[in-house]
Design a protein around this nucleic acid. Sequence first.
DNA 1: TATTGTTATACTCTATAACTATA
DNA 2: TATAGTTATAGAGTATAACAATA
Lengths: 146, 146
Amino acid sequence: MKSELRTHLPLSGDTAFLLARANARSLAAAHDALGAHGLRVRSYSVLALAAAEARLSQRDIAEYLWLDPSQVVSLVDDLQQRGLVTREPDENDRRAKVVVATDEGRRLHRAAARAVREREQETLEPLDETDRDRLRELLMRLAFPL
Amino acid sequence: MKSELRTHLPLSGDTAFLLARANARSLAAAHDALGAHGLRVRSYSVLALAAAEARLSQRDIAEYLWLDPSQVVSLVDDLQQRGLVTREPDENDRRAKVVVATDEGRRLHRAAARAVREREQETLEPLDETDRDRLRELLMRLAFPL
DNA sequence: TATTGTTATACTCTATAACTATA
DNA sequence: TATAGTTATAGAGTATAACAATA
């Protein structure tokens, strides 16, 4: 990078810019780690929610991942065709469909999650353990306000 | 959000996920603030670099914003057609083109930057001043490692 | 009437390769 | 041979509106 930039970084006053750039590095690493498992960031995220205990509907998943419900349809379609998740009827609401990971989906999720965590260490390398915890805590409050 | 989710948040162990979700909120706010000024996040970012002192080439801009050089072409095309930036020849390298903001471009940038900063306060509302500084410092190290 | 999942469509963003002019 | 800018293209992501089944 140009030396003038190093000394006076444009946009660095905008937290939004720093977030975006840090996120770009992080996303690239995650995408890279997931490729070997046949997943992308978004399909991995949906699979992770399907593997959770909460028995989430497609609507829940859309809200949690900040996706449009129509996007969740095709993501679940894909995972279902690969035998990684199933759509189960919600007993309390016949409109809703609960997305649940199959055994194979759970196995893949565990392996992929491990890969993501390992690769994440590189992105987080500039921070020591204390700073990583601090960052997670701050991001948590931004990501889930209230 | 479902109450089970509030107590045990899936994916919250992945810093990448927290970054992505915080960034999604932040991006939406910035996009919203910029709309009134006829800018998007990416065109605003390019304009901000053109308004900086460093006299950056398109290549510099691409690297700084994590964009492909070919994307910068059309972003600069658009800003140039609107009279907000000009392409100036680099005296030291006749291949390169320096992107410089016009007076009108500088005015728009100042107004847009103000709007982004104001709107950003809402996103950062869960954090007090000390935490905001801490977050910026941590993100800076992730965004610009070395 | 409102909500869930779905389909369809258009638009933006991303990734890649090739070309030209310069270095 | 390598780099800066450009063009072209395909694929992924995003935003919106409409519809059927159900609440």
